[in-house]
Structures are given as C-alpha cells and as structure tokens.
C-alpha cells in the first residue's frame, strides 16, 4: 500500500454508543459488517461449503439489518446495531455479547 486517496466524506448519522451511552457523530465510528456471525470454535471441523458460507455469505437485507460498528475514535468498543438499510435509521444499538434484538 503506497498511496491513499484523501479520505473525505460528510458524516451524517448520529449513532448511540451503548458503552459511552451517548449519541455521537458517525465520523467517530467504523462500520464492521454483519453482526452475530460467530467464528466457528474449530474451523478444521467444517466442510468447504460450511466454511465458504462463514467466510463469504452475508444476508444483505432491505430493511432490518443486524450489523456491527466500532466506536473507533471514541471508547474503541465494537458493538451491535439494528439498522434499517432502506431508511438508514438505527432501531437499537447494544453491547457485544448481548443477545440478538
């Protein structure tokens, strides 16, 4: 990796960090993919197909989506969120390890 283009964006969302218990600007956060996908405890037991599903297959719904964010420029914690992919509205955010909402 040699050169990076300038990183510039208008940060729009207001995201409630369940650890800081505060709504903070999106620019403090990093998106981290679909939530509740657990790394298999022993990947060697998985078939190629199962492993492929774990690696590559994501739900990508229109509407309610469980996803992970990290308050990377804040408390540093990864957490889970339910966001509507059509409206971009957050329904809830909750700490990692808490049950799926």
């Amino acid at each position: 990796m040699r050169r990076q283009p300038p990183q510039w964006r208008i940060e729009m969302l207001l995201i409630h960090c369940p650890y800081c218990d505060e709504a903070r600007a999106e620019i403090e956060f990093a998106y981290a993919g679909e939530a509740h996908i657990v790394r298999p405890p022993d990947p060697s037991l998985m078939s190629d197909e199962e492993w492929q599903r774990y690696l590559f297959i994501r739900s990508n719904p229109r509407g309610r989506h469980h996803e992970r964010w990290r308050h990377i420029h804040g408390c540093g914690r990864f957490f889970n969120a339910v966001r509507d992919t059509a409206t971009d509205k957050f329904e809830a955010t909750y700490k990692a390890g808490e049950p799926r909402r």
Binding site: V38, R39, R70, I72, R77, F78, A96
Partner: peptide, 11 residues
C-alpha cells in the same frame, strides 16, 4: 490494530 481488536473483543 483494528482487526486484532475485533478478534479480541468479539471472538
């Protein structure tokens, strides 16, 4: 660092 934090915090 982000990847390592990810494994550490979530896995």
């Amino acid at each position: 660092l982000n990847t390592m934090e990810d494994y550490l915090q979530t896995e």
